[in-house]
């Protein structure tokens, strides 16, 4: 529910899991000769990564030299994607990619190393636009629109006037 408080286990989240560093190590290994550079970058990315889930949205920040901070409103989420390859799943990791309608071709925010990605997905889904307002009731099921009510009021008043007129006569 949009107004409901954040579940404590999600409000408490701040740091990614340690397995993420293992995954970053393997990811850096895959770059072969660039390993020292990518490893340093990813190491600091891991150690400076901070999450914050508050009433309005998600805050994510990382980086020392290149400082990044992203703030994303729950109601602006377009879709939620879960990605995981075999190695990530062995480490118990799943990436959650959250997309908004901003023009970036890649996902706006990638939430890595969260302890319970499925629960996080359900939480984000519950805050998305359109997750709670089901399809509105078909309009012909409720014919009592403002217009018809006013017409009925007018006809009532007319008959009152007629009663009064006949009495006067």
């Amino acid at each position: 529910m949009p107004g409901a408080p954040i579940p404590p286990e999600i409000a408490r989240l701040e740091r990614p899991r340690e397995e993420l560093l293992t995954w970053y190590f393997l990811k850096a290994l895959a770059t072969l000769f660039a390993f020292p550079v990518t490893m340093v970058v990813l190491y600091f990315r891991y150690h400076t990564m901070r999450y914050k889930f508050d009433e309005e949205g998600i805050h994510l920040s990382w980086g020392i030299l290149m400082r990044h901070e992203i703030m994303l409103n729950y109601s602006r989420i377009q879709d939620i994607q879960l990605h995981s390859n075999v190695i990530e799943r062995w480490l118990g990791l799943t990436r959650i990619e959250v997309q908004t309608a901003a023009g970036a071709s890649d996902s706006e925010m990638t939430l890595e190393g969260l302890p319970n990605p499925e629960a996080m997905r359900d939480f984000l889904y519950s805050r998305m636009r359109g997750a709670h307002t089901g399809p509105p009731a078909p309009s012909n099921a409720a014919p009592e629109t403002l217009e018809t009510i006013f017409l009925q009021v007018a006809s009532e008043l007319r008959s009152i006037r007629e009663i009064l007129e006949t009495r006067k006569a």
Binding site: H83, S84, Y125, M128
Partner: peptide, 23 residues
């Protein structure tokens, strides 16, 4: 469902996308 879609696919790379009709 009546308010959202969820598509899951993949073996090596598992991919799941959830979006609401409102979007």
């Amino acid at each position: 469902t009546d308010r959202c879609l969820r598509v899951r696919s993949g073996i090596l790379n598992v991919h799941e996308i959830t979006t609401t009709f409102a979007n």
